[in-house]
C-alpha cells in the first residue's frame, strides 16, 4: 500500500492523523494505556477541568437510550492543579499532543484557567467548554448566547497565546451565529457538537432516569444532527472545524471530513470499544488507499451538492 498522508492541522496544532479523543470520554488518557497505543492518536483532549476539583452530579448519571446514551456527569474532575501535577507528566511523554478542556462558573474563572495553562509547556491547546448541558452555572450558560460566548473567548484570548478551540452546543436555534461570534472573538478553531439535551423517564416510578432530570444525549443517535451542524458551520467560518457526534467507525468520520471538518473527535465510542480511535484511523487510511487518495486533506470539505 502506498503511503497515505493522514496529517492534518488545527491551526497551529499539527496532528499526525485526524482522530482526537473527545473530552469526558477518555479520562486523563492513561486509563486507556493498557489497551491502545496512545502515540497513534491525533490528539488527546482530557476530561473538562475547573479551577478547583468538582464533585459532579449525584447518581444515577447515565442511562442508555436507543442508539445512544444520556449522561449527566456534571463535569466531575480533579481540578487544574492536580491535573498538572499528577496527570500531565505522563501525557507529556507521548508524541500525541494534549489539549485541555476547561470550564468555569464565570468569565473570570475561564480566564484564570487559561492563564494557568499558558504557563505550562506540555499543553498544546485549550478547548473551551461553553456547551456542557449538565451544570447549572457555567458551561452552557455561555454557549447559547452569541455575546456571552464571545465574552468568554475574548477573556481567555487575552490571557493565553495557546491555540483556542471552542466547543459549541447544539442546543441553540442557529449554531452558525454562535460559531461566527466565537471566531470573531479570537477562537482558532471550533469543535462541535457537544451533547444534545434530553431526558428519559421510568414509567413505573414516574421518576426521571437521571438524578439531574435532564442529560446530554450522545452516540450514533445524534450523528445526523451533528453532521448537519458541522456542514453549516464549516461553510460559515474560516477557522478549522472539528466534527463530533456519534462517530463509531471510519465511515462516520469520513462523513464529517467530507462535510468540512479538518479532524474529528471520538467520544461515546471509546466506552463501547476502547480501540475505536485506532480502528477509525486505520479505516480512514484504508478508505483513502483503496481510492488512491494520497492525503486525507484531499477529502476534507469535498461535499458535492
Amino acid at each position: 500500500m502506498k503511503h497515505i498522508d493522514l496529517q492534518t492541522d488545527i491551526g497551529k496544532i499539527k496532528l499526525k492523523n485526524p482522530v482526537i479523543t473527545a473530552s469526558g470520554t477518555f479520562g486523563y488518557g492513561r486509563e486507556f494505556e493498557e489497551l491502545i497505543d496512545l502515540n497513534r492518536l491525533g490528539a488527546i483532549i482530557v476530561k473538562g477541568l475547573s479551577l478547583k476539583p468538582a464533585k459532579g452530579n449525584p447518581p444515577p448519571r447515565i442511562v442508555e437510550t436507543s442508539c445512544g446514551m444520556l449522561n449527566a456527569i456534571g463535569l466531575e474532575n480533579i481540578g487544574i492543579e492536580a491535573f498538572i501535577k499528577q496527570k500531565l507528566p505522563f501525557l507529556e511523554q507521548l508524541s500525541t499532543p494534549t489539549l485541555v478542556n476547561i470550564y468555569g462558573k464565570s468569565v473570570e474563572e475561564y480566564a484564570d484557567l487559561a492563564a494557568r495553562i499558558d504557563e505550562v509547556e506540555g499543553i498544546a491547546g485549550i478547548e473551551i467548554n461553553i456547551s456542557c448541558p449538565n451544570v447549572k452555572t457555567g458551561g452552557i450558560a455561555f454557549g447559547v448566547d452569541p455575546e456571552s460566548a464571545a465574552e468568554v473567548v475574548r477573556a481567555v484570548r487575552t490571557r493565553t497565546t495557546k491555540p483556542l478551540m471552542v466547543k459549541l452546543s447544539p442546543n441553540v436555534t442557529d449554531i452558525t451565529e454562535i460559531a461566527r461570534s466565537a471566531e470573531d472573538a479570537g477562537a482558532d478553531s471550533l469543535s462541535l457538537i457537544n451533547t444534545i439535551t434530553g431526558m428519559a423517564i421510568d414509567i413505573e416510578t414516574r421518576h426521571p432516569k437521571l438524578a439531574n432530570i435532564t442529560g446530554g444525549l450522545s452516540g450514533p443517535a445524534i450523528k445526523p444532527v451533528a453532521l448537519r451542524m458541522v456542514w453549516q458551520v464549516a461553510q460559515t467560518v474560516k477557522i478549522p472545524v472539528i466534527g463530533i457526534g456519534g462517530i463509531m467507525k471510519a465511515e462516520d468520520a469520513l462523513e464529517f471530513l467530507i462535510a468540512g471538518a479538518v479532524a474529528v473527535q471520538v467520544g461515546t465510542a471509546n466506552f463501547v470499544n476502547p480501540c475505536s480511535t485506532i480502528e477509525i484511523t486505520e479505516g480512514i487510511e484504508a478508505f483513502l488507499a483503496e481510492r488512491k487518495i494520497s492525503s486525507v486533506r484531499d477529502i476534507i470539505g469535498t461535499l458535492e451538492v
Partner: peptide
Amino acid sequence: IMACGMGACLGCA
C-alpha cells in the same frame, strides 16, 4: 449502570 467500566466516563458514581 456504567458505560466504560474502566474509570473514564465517571458514570458509576
